[in-house]
Amino acid sequence: MAGTSRNCGGGKTPWGSWISCEETTATPAQPGQHGPVQKRHGYAFEVPIAANGPVNPVPLKAMGRFQREAIAIDPKTHIVYQTEDRGDSLFYRFIPKEPRNLAAGGELQALKIKSAPKLNTGQGLPRRQPFEVEWVPIADPDPATDTVRYQGYEKGAARFVRSEGLCYANGAFYFTATSGGQKQLGQIWCYRPGRTSTAGGTIELFVESAGKDVLDYPDNLTMAPWGDLICCEDGNDRTNRLVGITPQGQLYTFARNALNDQELAGVCFSPDGQTLFVNLYHPGMTFAIWGPWHRRS
């Protein structure tokens, strides 16, 4: 697929396709931020992995137009969860009308913490304390300008500080808030859906960085076969690493970029769990690292 702009983390579907996410809302009438464009940007696009040539790019407008970083899909309900890389971002979900057919439309909603409407989650929240969630509808998922997050916030949605990497594992969705936390070095949140699509679920602050030496700007992340999260750092002033996070929230350095100061991105494991793949953002390299990865050490 080509002709889209600033495609970011994205995510896989359970039915054998890839959702590519534009992290820009460049608009034809508003040239400047990321250069002149002929069409509106800020959409998700689906790419079947069985494609053997360029696919017809169809913007999935009902999923929302915003600086989308990543998506992850609940394998039971097929609800799509989405992150937005903005300093005042929201956390979204998209309930499709038809399973396995995102182009058929659906409803876009934003996460609201029941007990604290319009909560700014950037600072001052306790770790490992679940908050009950409800979801507020986004009336216009495809506005002319980058205002989807304002619609949700006006209805009480919670703000996150640059929500980026997102993954599903063991019934929960983990996502990073890259600049969140007391030290503005990053948070990792854990959202657990309710039993039904109408149930709100709960969210809790899973990890918050206490210093650059342990976690510096967490970005993309994935669940390792041994049950720890593996998180890519996108720090600005030091070597970037892959940081492991145990289910208890303990952090450890798993690997580091010894080549340059660029971020590692796109970390994932092969379906058989034997190979770890990770990209080096510049000069655009992909690494395959063989395990065994079935346990931590």
Binding site: A2, H34, V37, Q38, K39
Partner: peptide
């Protein structure tokens, strides 16, 4: 991709 398969031929610039 061929131009007729690109979502937006001008993006990114």
């Amino acid at each position: 991709a061929p131009k007729d398969r690109m979502y937006d031929p001008l993006a990114p610039v």
